[in-house]
Design a protein around this nucleic acid. Structure first.
Lengths: 191, 191
DNA sequence: CTTTCAATCGGACGACCGTTCGAATCTGTG
DNA sequence: CACAGATTCGAACGGTCGTCCGATTGAAAG
């Protein structure tokens, strides 16, 4: 009982997985079309051109990230619990869905050289830090910790730590130690 | 009084700057050759092929990074001073030599898809965290802080924070706030 | 001066890229 | 059924890529 999936969706799926396998730089439209089981010209038809398709992949990756967040972060959690949960989410993703990280890193890299992508990715990142700012580093927690830094600053540091450590994990074959070291990020809200 | 520069060196310089401008994915050997003022075939002659040239660029970027470290980190500094200095170094690089960051990020991205590059970049990263481990999170400082985490773990977190925040700064046009937020990383060794 | 070998060059080759286009097919409406 | 518009396809196009090769130059050794 195959779910009816539009050809447009199949192409997007295929593009996502091809990028996860080879990176945007080495992916060709022919590979994507082959993986999706459609003609190459269908990509142009549905997404204008290669850039249009890749931009759609950015949105898809961002959505997937958001879905994970909604699954993990529950409204009734305390700020510290949310911080802990974010750390655990990254640890789990690094073990079970490393594809997502590779795609994210790759698309951030693409955004360094292409303005349309930069704007899109920048917005995604700002959304993430915004969420961390308001949900983790709340006024209440900030008062408790007594930092001289703003909640926005701490959110950037926290997210930067998550991302930076994740990159180190991506580079290692045996990355269990590095994945565990993500836990040490709690030092930020356990002053 | 032009310094005598070998053609091999000129090619490497050109490759570095071309990557800083466009990323490895969009750089062609013809552009590099033109920028270096040599024939395209010279690249194959001196570096076998494109991969060989890019691997040499990795080494070059790593060396440049090491030079910065040697300029900034003095042996008579205390561990905390070295940590502070690292933060200041990153802040200064983000303002004055953003090229280096772009090249580093790009080559790390390349290493996600190519095993030879992964091994090379992995070694560079391990060297960095190793240095932070032994020079910043010394036994003395670790005793003073009383963390439950190992010095290696804290070094990974610290470096991850530096790198992750730097990436956020790369994505922003107006990145002064994010560059400043690097300073907040001192919370790790100001328990 | 001749020989030798490394360095350098320009051109050419085959492969592959993203895109385009006309024809064929499907789908739903009158 | 007939027709129109949206989909889908395969083939082809122009362009660019990395690589390779023969010829030329330069410098050092005999």
């Amino acid at each position: 009982m195959a779910v009816e999936t539009s050809q447009q969706e199949k192409i997007l799926d295929a593009a996502y997985h091809c990028i996860a396998k080879q990176g945007y730089a080495h992916v060709t439209l022919r590979q994507i079309a082959k993986e999706a089981g459609v003609a190459v010209s269908q990509i142009s038809y549905h997404y204008q051109n290669k850039e249009g398709l890749l931009l759609a992949v950015v949105t898809r990756a961002a959505n997937k990230y958001q879905e994970y967040l909604q699954d993990y972060l529950k409204p009734d959690m305390t700020p510290k619990e949310k911080g802990d949960t974010l750390i655990r989410l990254y640890q789990q993703l690094l073990e079970e869905d490393v594809e997502l990280f590779r795609v994210l890193y790759d698309l951030v890299g693409l955004s360094l050289w292409s303005e349309p992508f930069r704007l899109e990715v920048k917005e995604v990142f700002e959304g993430i830090t915004e969420q961390i700012t308001t949900e983790v580093f709340t006024d209440e927690l900030m008062g408790e910790l007594g930092y001289v830094y703003s909640s926005k600053t701490l959110a950037s540091v926290f997210f930067g730590g998550l991302f930076g450590i994740a990159i180190q994990a991506l580079l290692e074959q045996e990355n269990e130690d590095i994945i565990k070291s993500l836990s040490a990020l709690v030092v930020i809200f356990n002053k």
